[in-house]
Design a protein around this nucleic acid. Structure first.
Length: 235
DNA sequence: CGTCCAGGTCTAC
DNA sequence: GGTAGACCTGGACGC
């Protein structure tokens, strides 16, 4: 499957023709991957002409996400306390567990925590992932309802995510960005030094960093991310 | 071959 | 409320 952009429209090409049902599923997945329902116009409109992020009005700021919230949370969990190469290895192992696609909550639960340890080699993260999978299967946790585009409340989402084992401040902030809540700053061992270097300073506390972006209000976390990744944007 | 630690978090003081 | 110590794993290092 390939996705191309032309004249403000995303076009999806598949190797073979799809049924109407499959087309709808692909369309929904692509929409979620590119956060189509996220409306960034309040952020863009609030940027003054002399704002250092004024360039973002060209359309920057969409976070690439996964088709499902579960997948985003698992990927986030697998990014904690390890090198990015390890994150990718764990995700690849999970996809193998899923038979070539990302596994469902049922598949993760049925696999069992020990398989997550022995085969996926997730280490102590296996417990956290298994607990989430179990709660989703039990109907106790409705992850898809946490999307901003679905009308979820920011405070409630932060509380729910924070209550999950293995989800501390970094993981919650990261997951919330992917869910369409752009306030929390993703503070980790990459963003902190990157920002400090950008500032040309020797160090800066988390509190000071938050103060630097407080004026962006509900988009503070997005503003922080855009500041760090400006050189990722072509042109 | 041992030590360190990377896109952190939890627990126990 | 703040902070050591432990925690799986596997690359990257020093010796």
């Amino acid at each position: 499957m390939t996705v191309t952009q032309r004249e403000g429209t995303l076009r999806v090409a598949t190797p073979a023709a799809l049924s109407a049902r499959a087309r709808a599923e692909v369309a929904q997945s692509v929409a979620r991957i590119f956060a189509i329902e996220t409306d960034l116009s309040p952020f863009y409109n609030a940027l003054a002409d002399n704002d250092p992020l004024h360039w973002a009005r060209g359309g920057a700021g969409r976070m690439l996400a996964s088709p499902s919230v579960l997948e985003d949370l698992v990927k986030t969990l697998c990014s904690t306390n390890c090198a990015f190469s390890a994150t990718r290895r764990m995700i690849a192992a999970l996809v193998q567990l899923g038979g070539g696609a990302f596994p469902t909550a049922e598949m993760l639960r049925d696999a069992g925590a020990q398989t997550l340890i022995d085969d996926v080699r997730m280490g102590y993260r296996a417990r956290s992932l298994f607990e989430v999978a179990e709660r989703v299967c039990d109907g106790e946790l409705d992850l898809e309802s946490l999307r901003a585009a679905g009308g979820a409340r920011e405070e409630a989402v932060a509380e729910t995510l924070g209550s999950l084992h293995g989800f501390g401040p970094y993981a919650v902030a990261h997951a919330m960005q992917l869910l369409g809540f752009h306030r929390p700053l993703i503070l980790d061992s990459w963003t902190r030094p990157t920002y400090v270097q950008l500032l040309g300073k020797r160090s800066r506390s988390d509190a000071a960093i938050r103060r630097d972006f407080a004026r962006y209000g509900a988009y503070a976390g997005l503003a922080f991310w855009l500041t760090l990744t400006k050189d990722w944007v072509p042109g």
